[in-house]
Simulated assay, not measured.
Amino acid sequence: MKNVLLLSGNENSSHLFLGEAKRTAETRQVPLNFKASVMADLTPELLAEQDLVLLAPQTASDADAAAMNTQVPTVDIPNDIYGWLNGQALVKFACQELGLSVVGAR
């Protein structure tokens, strides 16, 4: 199981997105454990638990400024995935970034 952190500036939208991504991963038996956080709640301990950090578009510059001083791969979520809150596409994107098979994920 790989841990994926969705980091955004708006807790409401990230939790909607997170729910869809979790449902998709569970339904399609993709080994991803999604968690969401906002920049203000980000801690070194939380980062250390992650295999991948996905940054919402509005958070990318803040995260760079926060100097994601970690060995965890950190990637911006494409606007078309985040803008539509497409959980299925997010699961596929996370799998690609982690080098996991995306069988069953569309």
Rank of each mutant, 00 (worst) to 15 (best):
L85V: 08
Q96N: 10
L32E: 02
P31K: 13
L18C: 07
L98P: 05
F17I: 04
P73W: 09
R28A: 11
N69I: 04
R23S: 03
D80Y: 15
V72D: 15
E49Y: 07
V30R: 11
A60C: 09
N33C: 05
G87C: 12
V30F: 06
F17G: 03
G9I: 01
D41H: 04
L18M: 15
L18F: 05
N69C: 04
E45G: 10
R28W: 07
S8T: 08
D62Y: 14
V91C: 14
N33A: 04
L54G: 04
L18Y: 03
Y82H: 14
L6H: 02
A66D: 09
L16P: 00
C95I: 06
V53W: 01
I77N: 02
V91H: 02
M1W: 10
P73R: 02
V75R: 05
N33P: 02
T24W: 01
L90G: 06
Q50C: 06
V72S: 07
Q71E: 15
E45H: 06
D41L: 10
S101N: 10
L47Y: 04
V102N: 10
S14A: 06
E45P: 01
P78W: 04
L7K: 06
M39I: 13
V30Q: 08
D80I: 14
T74L: 03
D76H: 01
S37G: 03
G19D: 06
I81S: 04
Y82W: 14
D64L: 07
T59Y: 08
Q50E: 12
L85H: 07
P73M: 08
D64I: 10
A48G: 11
E49M: 08
D80M: 13
V91P: 00
P73S: 15
S101I: 07
L55K: 02
G83W: 04
L90H: 00
A36C: 03
N10V: 11
Q88L: 14
D62F: 12
A48R: 10
F34R: 01
K22C: 08
P44V: 08
S101A: 15
Q88A: 09
T59W: 03
T70A: 15
S37M: 01
G104N: 05
T74I: 09
E97V: 06
V91E: 00
P31W: 13
M68L: 15
V103T: 14
N3F: 09
A25W: 03
H15M: 14
V4T: 01
A94P: 00
M68T: 02
D76C: 03
M1L: 07
M1Y: 01
T43F: 02
N10L: 05
L46H: 06
T27C: 03
F17Q: 09
K92H: 12
Q88G: 14
K92V: 09
T74C: 15
M1A: 10
A60S: 09
W84K: 12
